[in-house]
Computed example of a mutant assay.
Amino acid sequence: MTIDSPALPGPLRWAVWLLRGEAVALGLVAAFLIYKDLTASASTDIVSALFVTGFAIGGAAALWALATGLGRRRAGARAPAIVLQLMLFPVGYYMIEGGLAWLGVPLIVLGALLCGLLVCAPTNRALGVG
């Protein structure tokens, strides 16, 4: 006989889904980078290209793992997830400065939204913190 735990509260469920969405989006970027690495010209700095691709793959895996941990109510997954979301602020800012406001503003909003979802009271209760 198994005892089901109560369903995740809304804010935590949304945070898990948004983190998984970020992981999928970054995974698609990684797939594109792999394609570009495989079709690059001989003059391309392949070491740098592979480093960037590896970073994207690692980021996608980390976001997915954190979403899974939060979905399983692991309080230890919350702080790294918040740190990754806070990293969206400078990225979004420099995108805005570089003329990509259409992408930078949503990234900042997404980071702020997820941080809010991860620190709100229902999430705290579900994770057993605070």
Rank of each mutant, 00 (worst) to 15 (best):
F51A: 11
L28D: 09
A31I: 13
A60W: 03
W64G: 05
D4R: 15
L38A: 14
I96L: 06
W102F: 15
A15N: 05
A121P: 13
K36Q: 12
Y93Q: 11
G111Q: 03
G58S: 13
L114C: 07
F51C: 03
G104A: 09
A81M: 04
A60E: 00
T39Y: 06
I96N: 03
P90S: 10
A23C: 04
V83F: 05
L63A: 15
G130R: 07
F55H: 07
V24P: 01
L12A: 05
A77V: 00
M95K: 15
V83R: 12
M95G: 10
R125L: 06
A40C: 12
G58N: 10
F89H: 10
A79P: 00
I3V: 14
V91P: 02
L8V: 04
I82S: 01
V105F: 00
A65I: 11
E22P: 00
T68A: 08
L19I: 00
G99F: 12
A81F: 07
V29F: 03
G54H: 11
S43A: 14
G10Q: 09
A126F: 04
A79D: 14
T68W: 02
R73T: 09
T44H: 08
L28H: 01
G54P: 10
G98N: 10
L18A: 14
L66H: 13
A49K: 13
D4H: 14
E22K: 12
G128H: 12
L88S: 12
T2F: 14
L8H: 02
D45E: 07
N124I: 00
G27M: 04
S41T: 14
P90C: 07
V105E: 06
L117H: 08
G92N: 10
G58E: 01
G76T: 06
A49W: 06
S5C: 02
G111M: 03
V129F: 01
I57Q: 00
R72N: 14
Y35F: 15
A56E: 07
R13A: 14
N124K: 11
P9W: 00
T39P: 08
G98E: 07
G10A: 11
A23S: 15
P6E: 09
